[in-house]
Nucleic acid binder design. Structure first.
Length: 616
RNA sequence: CGGAGCGUAGCGCAGCCUGGUAGCGCGCUUGGUUUGGGACCAAGAUGUCGGAGGUUCGAAUCCUCUCGCUCCGACCA
């Protein structure tokens, strides 16, 4: 279709039958820069036959979750190593959409973009103490001079170093710096494609304030920006209270995209707005001490009974009447934790209660040493280690517990009379049906994918790294920090987890790699070809991101690919509709089909794109 | 790091137990017929069977080591 180049500098163009300029590089129509005579249309105008969008009919063997499978099948990503991916053109477009939304909202919230290096010198990490603390997740390497480096898994050190070297006065604060950058965390077990990779794109922002009030304000701004971001992405999400974990700091919220396949459990109140990560969700201490008369302690042989379920059967007691004794090592010190049989221990809560930096379940040797008995038969009687108990335990009478010797449990055991507890606390996971601490409503469970996390850090890093400012009185103070992350790739993956069906992905308009797919059903039919090309041009002129499927494939194959790649609006240009002067539009999400008159199709499609973006 | 499993054509897999010609489906190439929901016919191309060593006349197959990958667990923003 393209003519012969004339050889002059300007002649990257030629003419086609429609009298439109054709770029000789990409063979697309129009979209050429009139000054440079170079095609600049790569972002808005695309022909499938010239594009790079290799789809797969079958699911790859190593993809377990839907988002991973579909991203592989739709040619969005390609695995390079465990947890390390190339972003192929179609996938990258969606990544860029998320980045752009994030960038706009961060800028609007007053944050300023910068870019920090992936390779970090060890000195900065030694200064904060995390070189030793971070563990194997930190990918370390040496340069040719044998100097230690690591790949940045997060950038508190680097950004604090930047700020401390330039910020001297309270007049220069507050400031909030962010970047969108590739991180590396050498995860023990990367999985689920982009959901938990080792290398991943993250937006991380860091706020610096002179006082607590300012820091809270910065935090609040970010909280609001995050809400705007996830709303604009068209995702169903919840903001939940979270445990601040290893990063430290005083409070934090997670942003969870709700999806059945989520790795995290979100507890939310059915009656009010309260939502929390299961690690954090408060369990209200309530109940009445049982008035059952105390029985005598009785030894029962419970051969081979290791689990609460086994013991419950053998003792003929409800799991609620059994208390399990779990031995944990808190910074290498053994501690016993009592939990009612039908409850689950919450390790984050006990870790916080003890102020331990490392907490793990005791191994069989440690259990034997602390209790004198084997795993599965631990009990509180006669224990020399501190005993912490969940609140629920204090309301029980005549409980069943382990006997600290093989195949023995005890019945009719009672608090105070038979054993003492060092301290009662909320130590279990919240469950469906528990009471909300704010309004008394009921908890319910949902699953979520953590796509954002905001922390109020305080002075943890500024203190360690001496990032100070002079206040109005000329006195040096530690800068108060906050940090705010968003997993970009994970947000794309989460969107797919939340929006797909058996046929493929269903993009929300704001994240869709293209907004409209024009399916030129039979490219050999002149009328079809011309109508499709014209629509394509018109959509382009209207600023719509459009992919023209001009491949000479069978209709079935093209429809299947269209469903798989999930572009929100699919226009079919075929001989059948053209006879009536109509085009068929299918809404990928609802499957709803409607006919559009040829002349006004582009305008109507543009309106639908615009209103979808506006969230109407 | 503990447990399980898998590496054979671009993708999905069979063959291995019981050693002897490397195979199937999809995809790809060429020609023809087809064209509104993954077409059909014909002809093709594609493999150091993850790597190294060993046993054997002979190894995809048996043995040892090694590398990579996946899943469960532990761990983790």
């Amino acid at each position: 279709m393209a003519g012969t180049p004339c050889g002059s500098v300007a002649c990257f163009w030629s003419e086609n039958p429609y009298n439109l300029p054709v770029c000789l590089w990409c063979r697309g129509l129009g979209g050429t820069d009139p000054l440079l005579f170079l095609c600049i249309q790569d972002t808005k105008l695309m022909r499938y036959s010239q594009y790079f969008l290799p789809t797969l009919k079958e699911n790859p063997a190593d993809a377990e979750v839907v988002s991973h499978q579909l991203m592989m099948r739709a040619g969005m990503i390609r695995k390079v190593a465990a947890g390390v991916y190339s972003y192929l053109p179609f996938g990258l477009r969606s990544i860029r959409k998320v980045e752009q939304i994030v960038r706009e909202e961060m800028n609007r919230a007053g944050a300023i973009e910068l870019l920090m290096p992936m390779a970090n010198p060890a000195e900065l990490w030694q200064e904060s103490g995390r070189w030793d603390y971070y563990g194997k997740e930190l990918l370390r390497f040496k340069d040719r001079h044998q100097r230690d480096f690591c790949m940045g898994p997060t950038h508190e050190e680097v950004v604090t170093d930047v700020v401390r070297s330039f910020v001297k006065s309270y007049r220069q604060l507050p400031v909030n710096l962010y970047q969108i950058q590739t991180k590396f965390r050498d995860e023990v077990r990367p999985r689920f494609g982009l959901m938990r990779g080792r290398e991943f794109i993250m937006k991380d922002a860091y706020s610096f304030d002179t006082n607590d009030e300012g820091a809270n304000e910065s935090y609040e701004k970010m909280r609001q920006a995050y809400c705007h971001i996830f709303e604009r992405c068209g995702l169903k999400y919840r903001m939940v209270e979270a445990d601040s974990g290893a990063i430290g700091g005083s409070f934090s919220h997670e942003f969870m995209v709700l999806a059945a396949t989520g790795e995290d459990v979100v507890i939310s109140c059915e009656s009010c707005e309260y939502s929390a990560n299961i690690e954090k969700a408060v369990v209200v201490d309530q109940g009445e001490v049982s008035q059952e008369p105390m029985r005598e302690v009785e030894r029962v042989v419970t051969e081979g009974a290791h689990t609460v379920a086994d013991v419950s059967l053998m003792l003929n007691l409800d799991p609620q009447q059994i208390v399990k004794t779990m031995l944990v090592m808190a910074d290498d010190q053994p501690v016993a934790v009592l939990i009612r049989g039908d409850h689950e221990l919450n390790e984050a809560k006990i870790k916080n209660l003890l102020g331990a930096s490392v907490l793990e379940l005791a191994n069989p040797e440690q259990i034997a040493e602390a209790t004198g008995g084997p795993v599965g038969f631990s009990g509180p009687l006669g224990l020399k280690v501190p005993i912490y108990a969940d609140n629920a335990v204090k309301y029980l009478r005549n409980i069943g517990v382990g006997g600290n010797e093989k195949d023995i449990h005890l019945e009719g055991v009672n608090l105070e009379r038979d054993f003492q507890v060092t301290q009662f606390a909320d130590l279990r996971n919240a469950m469906e049906g528990d009471r909300c601490p704010h309004c008394g409503g009921q908890y319910s469970n949902t699953r979520g994918i953590e796509v954002g996390h905001i922390f109020k850090l305080g002075t943890k890093y500024s203190e360690a790294m001496k990032a100070t400012f002079l206040d109005a009185d000329g006195k040096a103070n530690d800068i108060i920090m906050g940090c705010y992350g968003i997993g970009i790739g994970r947000t794309v993956a989460a969107s797919i987890e939340q929006n797909h069906d058996d046929d493929g992905m269903i993009w929300p308009m704001p994240l869709a790699p293209f907004q409209v797919l024009v399916n030129m059903l039979n490219p050999k039919d002149d009328a079809v070809r011309e109508a499709a090309e014209n629509l394509y041009r018109a959509l382009l002129d209207a600023g719509v991101e459009v992919l023209l499927d001009d491949r000479d494939e069978r209709p079935g194959a093209k429809f299947k690919d269209a469903d798989l790649i999930g572009i929100p609006l699919n226009v079919t240009v075929g001989a059948r509709g053209l006879k009536e002067g109509q085009l068929e539009v299918k809404d990928r999400a609802t499957g709803e089909k409607s006919m559009l008159p040829l002349e006004s199709a582009a305008t109507m499609l543009q309106e639908r794109v615009t209103s979808a973006l506006a969230g109407v």
